[in-house]
């Protein structure tokens, strides 16, 4: 295993040459790195030796057929896999050069820094305000009621939901439409001011118009947060991401600039997938 400093240098060097274990990351600030990550569910290996760099300025998309491990890998990035008793993660994942699987890493704090948006909108069965205020409240981010109000308002504005709900902040969050609920979940995630936002197929339960809104939102959020999005939809990956990683059967097949990967894939498997041979 290379030491961290080497990897950093390689990765932050502009136009670094492609390396087998550390795909290049050009013109970006390195936020998260994964090296030789394996994930096992019991005896079954779900992720096999994945190494990837995630940049601050870009939206990174994970694509691949069902069961290829892209969601599993995403959930390693904020240790959500800890909640599955039989899951076992080996290898190294770092956030700002700190190993997130280190016993000294506080998982609660990690998840505040690496927020997550799930496949199905899952607002708490509470009011819209409470949904967004919950995170800041448990992390003590607001010292006064007015500060909390401000965080909630700002997060809802950022998630593009404020105009639609400003008159009914105290209505139930579950009464919103699917797309609004998903934006509420994004607002909830950004309310704790994370550095990275992981999105696990955030549009798979939404209609095309709601999907378009979320994609627009992802575009707006780019640059403020490092965003990783898992998607089934290759057009969506092409539309919202700057980098794309193609997963297949638990391995990372190819990782590169989205435009390159879609127009000029270097691997046959990638080519077969993006041209619709399987999926």
């Amino acid at each position: 295993m290379n030491n961290v400093g080497d990897m950093m240098n390689d990765a932050t060097d502009t136009q670094a040459e492609s390396r087998a274990d550390a795909p290049a990351l050009a013109q970006d600030t390195l936020k998260m790195t994964a090296r030789n990550v394996d994930v096992y569910y019991g005896d079954k290996q779900a992720i096999d030796n994945v190494s990837i760099d995630i940049g601050m300025e870009n939206v990174t998309a994970f694509i691949g057929p069902s069961g290829c491990g892209k969601s599993t890998f995403l959930r390693c990035l904020n240790r959500m896999n800890d909640t599955i008793p039989i899951a076992r993660v080996t290898g190294q994942i770092e956030l700002d050069e700190k190993d997130i699987y280190d016993p000294a890493m506080d998982v609660v704090q990690l998840r505040a820094r690496v927020g997550m948006v799930f496949q199905k909108p899952n607002p708490f069965p509470k009011s819209i305000f409470e949904n967004v205020a919950y995170g800041p409240r448990i992390h003590g981010l607001a010292t006064s009621k007015s500060e909390l109000d401000e965080i909630v308002e700002k997060s809802l504005i950022r998630a593009g939901l404020f105009e639609e709900v400003k008159d009914r902040l105290h209505d139930s969050g579950t009464a919103l439409s699917g797309g609004q609920q998903q934006r509420l979940c994004i607002a909830r995630a950004i309310a704790v001011d994370p550095e990275v936002i992981l999105m696990d197929e955030p549009c798979s339960a939404l209609d095309p118009i709601a999907t378009a809104k979320i994609e627009e939102l992802i575009n707006d959020l780019r640059g403020k947060y490092a965003i990783v999005i898992v998607t089934h939809n290759m057009q969506q990956a092409a539309r919202v991401s700057q980098r794309t990683a193609f997963f297949h059967l638990g391995t990372l097949v190819e990782y590169g600039e989205t435009s390159d990967l879609f127009t000029n894939p270097s691997q046959d498997r990638t080519k077969d997938y993006i041209t619709g041979r399987y999926g």
């Binding site: 909640t83 609660v108 998840r111 799930f118 899952n122 708490f124 448990i138 979940c185």
Partner: peptide
């Protein structure tokens, strides 16, 4: 209790007791 609610809370950094 739907697991999605647990995920949601864990996902924004609530501790298991929370």
């Amino acid at each position: 209790v739907p697991p999605s609610i647990r995920d949601a809370a864990l996902g924004i950094g609530a501790s298991p007791v929370q």
